[in-house]
Amino acid sequence: MPRISFPVLLLWGDQDPFTPLDGPVGKYFSSLPCEQPNVCLFVLEGVGHCPHDDRPDLVHEKLLPWLACLPAS
């Protein structure tokens, strides 16, 4: 991740049983927004491991504005 310079959006379900936020992987990725300005994290409440399947409405609520703010290539 430190070598990635393009914008990164992380959408994480707070009910993820496989990669919980308080586990080693979750802690690593949740620390990235403080360390890398190109990383944005949203924790989605009541959502599991597959946010796009569990709550597509919440995913779109975060994804679409984030995409709209990206610079044109």
Results as ranks from 00 to 15, higher is better:
Gly26Pro: 03
Tyr28Ser: 12
Met1Tyr: 11
Asp16Trp: 02
Phe18Val: 15
Val43Asn: 06
Ser30Ala: 13
Leu64Trp: 01
Gly48Lys: 08
Ser31His: 10
Met1His: 07
Leu64Tyr: 04
Ala72Cys: 14
Pro20Lys: 00
Leu10Trp: 03
Met1Lys: 09
Met1Thr: 15
Cys40Pro: 08
Asp53Met: 08
Tyr28Trp: 15
Pro37Glu: 11
Pro51Arg: 03
Arg3Trp: 15
Ile4Val: 11
Leu10His: 13
Pro71Ala: 12
His52Val: 01
Pro2Cys: 14
Ala72Leu: 11
Gly13Thr: 04
Pro56Glu: 02
Ser73Ile: 09
Leu67Gly: 13
Pro51Ser: 00
Phe18Asn: 15
Arg55Lys: 12
Val39His: 01
Leu21Val: 10
Leu44Asn: 01
Pro71Gln: 09
Glu35Asp: 09
Asp22Ser: 08
Asp14Cys: 06
Asp57His: 03
Gln36Met: 06
Leu67Tyr: 06
Val39Arg: 02
Pro37Cys: 04
Ala72Arg: 14
Ala72Ile: 10
Asp54Lys: 02
Asp16Arg: 06
His60Lys: 12
Asp57Ser: 09
Leu63Phe: 04
Ala72Asp: 14
Ser30Met: 12
Leu11Asp: 12
Val47Glu: 00
Val43Tyr: 02
Leu41Trp: 01
Arg3Met: 10
Asp54Trp: 05
Ser73Gln: 12
Ser30Gly: 13
Leu64Thr: 00
Leu10Ala: 11
Asp14Phe: 08
His60Tyr: 14
Ala68Tyr: 06
Ser73Trp: 10
Phe42Val: 07
Asp57Gln: 14
Gly46Asn: 05
Ala68Thr: 03
Pro65Thr: 02
Pro17Gln: 05
Leu11Val: 05
Val25Trp: 11
Leu32Pro: 05
Ser73Asp: 13
Val47Gln: 03
Asp57Pro: 06
Asn38Lys: 05
Pro33Cys: 05
His60Gln: 10
Pro56Trp: 02
Glu45Cys: 12
His52Phe: 07
Pro20Asp: 07
Thr19Gln: 01
Leu21Pro: 07
Ala72Met: 12
Val59Met: 00
His52Gly: 08
Asp16Leu: 04
Glu35Arg: 12
Trp12Ala: 00
Gly48Asp: 15
Leu21Lys: 14
Asp22Cys: 02
Leu58Ser: 01
Pro71Leu: 11
Cys69Met: 14
Ser31Val: 02
Val59Asp: 05
Leu63Ala: 00
Leu58Asn: 00
Arg3Glu: 11
Glu35Trp: 08
Met1Ile: 15
Leu41Cys: 04
Ser5Tyr: 05
Asn38Leu: 04
Leu21Arg: 08
Asn38Ser: 04
Asp16Met: 00
Ser30Lys: 07
Ser5His: 10
Thr19Tyr: 13
Asp22Val: 10
Gln15Asp: 15
Phe18Met: 13
Cys50Tyr: 15
Glu61Trp: 08
His52Asp: 03
